[in-house]
Amino acid sequence: MSVLKKTFHINKKDFIHAGEASIKIKNLLKSLNTDPKLIRRVAVCGYEGEMNVVMHGGEGFLNIQINTGKILLNISDDGPGIEDIERAMEKGFSTALDKYREMGFGAGMGLPNMKENSDHFTIESEKNRGTRVGMVFFR
């Protein structure tokens, strides 16, 4: 199988289209006969990443690269960045605004869910310099 790459744009505060990139990725992986458990893991990570960018980030991109042996998922944004990454990775810690919490977001599980559902997880961020999350899934 050749390498397949796709990029999706994520708009700031766009709750209407949030999740659509992950649904497209899920359908794409399904059409490639990917193991359903792996599809679910990638979909969870994609969705959490999209929501993070929509709620906290600026403009963002979700990139997926599907190789024979692995899937790479990278999500980046040019938002305000994360001041304390260690705290952001703690389950239950969230900086989401009340209006997002009322919608059921901001449980402080987004980044931990992404880490748990991927085989390799990296996060890079600096105040005012955006955030980049990279995940690898072995097939």
């Binding site: 709750f15 209407i16 949030a18 999740g19 659509e20 992950s22 649904i23 899920k26 679910r40 979909a43 969870v44 969705y47 919608m103 059921g104 977001f105």
Partner: peptide, 16 residues
């Protein structure tokens, strides 16, 4: 079963 009625619940339902 949820109390949420906004459209993001659909993305969750589709993905799961």
């Amino acid at each position: 079963l949820t109390v949420q009625g906004h459209q993001n619940i659909l993305a969750i339902a589709v993905l799961r």
